[in-house]
Simulated assay, not measured.
Amino acid sequence: MTSESRSAPDWEGFLRALIETLDEHMSSEERAVLLRAVGQRIAARSHIPPEPTLAGLEARMNERLAGPRWGSVSIALDADGPALVLTHAAPPRLSAGQGGSDWIAPVLEGLHTGWIGTQPGAAPEIGARLVSADEHRMVIRYGA
């Protein structure tokens, strides 16, 4: 087996084609709904057991994010209401100038909704929504 065949596959071409195809066949809201569902499916496949503290939950989430190199997240209580603020640093992205955050934001919304929504005391009707984003971080609010 050559070193080339043992290396991780490069998924960028596939992801770019997939996102472009979704853009051609779906409205932006339809695409966002689909990508949130993908994020929730990923969360279900990498389940986080009940964590009694936010620090513990944050640590488990970061363990899950480290494997595929999807950045890291910090969790804080929202001072403006009953919600959590998740700051997701170094989110996955395609090459510079290609697609920005518009494809990964709903995936991360679904992922964080899935992970937090299975924790003790979480209400299933609450979800995570993007508040702001730049090339280095996304701020996501989980709450009513």
Rank of each mutant, 00 (worst) to 15 (best):
2 T>H: 09
2 T>I: 09
6 R>Y: 06
9 P>Y: 02
9 P>N: 03
9 P>V: 11
10 D>R: 09
10 D>F: 05
11 W>D: 04
12 E>N: 09
12 E>Y: 02
13 G>K: 00
14 F>T: 05
15 L>V: 06
17 A>Q: 15
18 L>G: 03
19 I>E: 06
21 T>H: 06
22 L>K: 03
24 E>I: 08
26 M>N: 10
28 S>H: 06
30 E>L: 01
32 A>I: 09
33 V>T: 13
35 L>D: 11
36 R>G: 09
36 R>F: 09
45 R>F: 04
45 R>A: 01
45 R>E: 01
45 R>N: 01
46 S>H: 10
49 P>L: 14
49 P>V: 11
50 P>G: 07
51 E>D: 13
51 E>H: 05
53 T>R: 03
55 A>N: 07
56 G>V: 10
57 L>T: 00
57 L>N: 00
58 E>L: 03
58 E>K: 03
61 M>N: 00
63 E>V: 12
64 R>S: 14
64 R>V: 14
65 L>A: 05
66 A>D: 07
70 W>R: 07
71 G>W: 01
73 V>D: 06
75 I>Q: 08
76 A>Q: 14
78 D>K: 00
81 G>A: 03
85 V>P: 04
89 A>S: 15
91 P>C: 03
93 R>K: 10
94 L>E: 07
95 S>T: 13
96 A>Y: 14
97 G>Q: 06
102 D>G: 13
102 D>Q: 15
102 D>P: 03
103 W>R: 07
106 P>Q: 03
108 L>I: 13
108 L>Q: 07
110 G>I: 02
111 L>M: 13
111 L>D: 12
112 H>E: 12
112 H>I: 14
113 T>L: 04
113 T>H: 01
116 I>Y: 13
116 I>P: 13
118 T>S: 01
119 Q>W: 13
119 Q>A: 04
121 G>K: 11
122 A>S: 15
122 A>Q: 13
123 A>R: 09
124 P>L: 10
125 E>G: 03
126 I>R: 11
127 G>M: 10
129 R>S: 13
130 L>T: 12
131 V>N: 04
134 D>G: 08
135 E>K: 08
138 M>G: 02
138 M>C: 08
142 Y>I: 08
143 G>S: 05
144 A>W: 08
